[in-house]
Amino acid sequence: MLQVKNLFASVEGKQILKGLNLEVKNGEVHAIMGPNGSGKSTLASVLAGREDYEVSGEVIYDGKNLLEMSPEERAQAGMFLAFQYPVEIAGVSNATFLKEALNSIRLANGKEKLDSKDFLKLMKEKMAMVEMDKTMTQRSVNEGFSGGEKKRNEIFQMAMLEPKLCVLDETDSGLDIDALKIVSHGVNALRNSERSFVVITHYQRLLDYIVPDFVHVLYNGRIVKSGTKELALELEEKGYDWIKEAITV
C-alpha cells in the first residue's frame, strides 16, 4: 500500500526528515511515535501534499508516485489525512462540503455522483457511527466546534469518504477519555483487511484503544526503531530518552 524510501524533507532551509523509511501493507495499522520536533507533523504534511516543504526521496502509494500528485489527486486515489488542527471554514456547511468531496472522489474514480437522497442516507448511517449530533451537518465546517468535536468530525469524514490509507496526525491531542473512546471506536469500525492506517501519536494511551500491528519510533527525522505494540508500552515506561541513549550507543 505505502512504501516510503529515503524520504528527506526540509522547510525554510531546516532539514526535518532525514531519510525516513516505512512500509505499510494492506490492512495494517502502523503507529508512529516520537518526541516533539522529531518530524511527526512534517511526515503527515508531506504525505498529504502540503507545498511548503522541499522533498526528495520516494513515496509509492498503491503503485503510484505519491510525491507527484496534487492534494486532491491523493484524496481521489484513496488517501485521507486526519488533521491535528482542523481548520474552520465559515460559510460552507459540513453537508455541502462532504457532498462535494464525496462526489469529486466518485467522479475521479469513474463512478456517478450520489444524489441528495442517497447522500443523506449515507450521512445518517455514518453519523450514528461516530455519535455525531444531527445539527452538526448544517453547521459550517468545524465552526465553533470544540477540539473533541473537530477530531470527531475528521473521523466522520473518514467514514464518509472510505479511504484506503488513513493517516491520523496526533488525533488524540487535546482529547479527554470520552472523546478518545468515541474517536477510537470510529477508527476501529473502519478497520478491515484492505484499509491501512498510519497513526501518528506522542502518547501511548491512544494505542490502548487503537491497537497497532506495528510501532515505529521517529527520532530526529528518521525511524530508529520498529517493533510491535509492546514497543509502545516500553517507550511509555522508559520515556524517549531511552531511545536517544540506545541510538548514541
Binding site: A48, G49, R50, S70, P71, E72, R74, A75, Q76, F80, L81, F83, P86, V87, I89, A90, G91, V92, T96, F97, L98, E100, A101, L102, S104, I105, A108, S140, V141, Q157, L161
Partner: peptide, 27 residues
C-alpha cells in the same frame, strides 16, 4: 483566500478550481 481552508478542501478530493469557487461563494 484562506490557504488553509483551500488546502483542507483539496485534501478531501475537491479540485482546486471547485474549492476556490466554494470558498468564494461561502464568503
Amino acid at each position: 483566500m484562506d490557504d488553509e481552508a483551500l488546502f483542507y478542501l483539496r485534501s478531501r478530493g475537491i479540485n482546486e478550481a471547485d474549492a476556490k469557487a466554494l470558498l468564494n461563494l461561502a464568503f
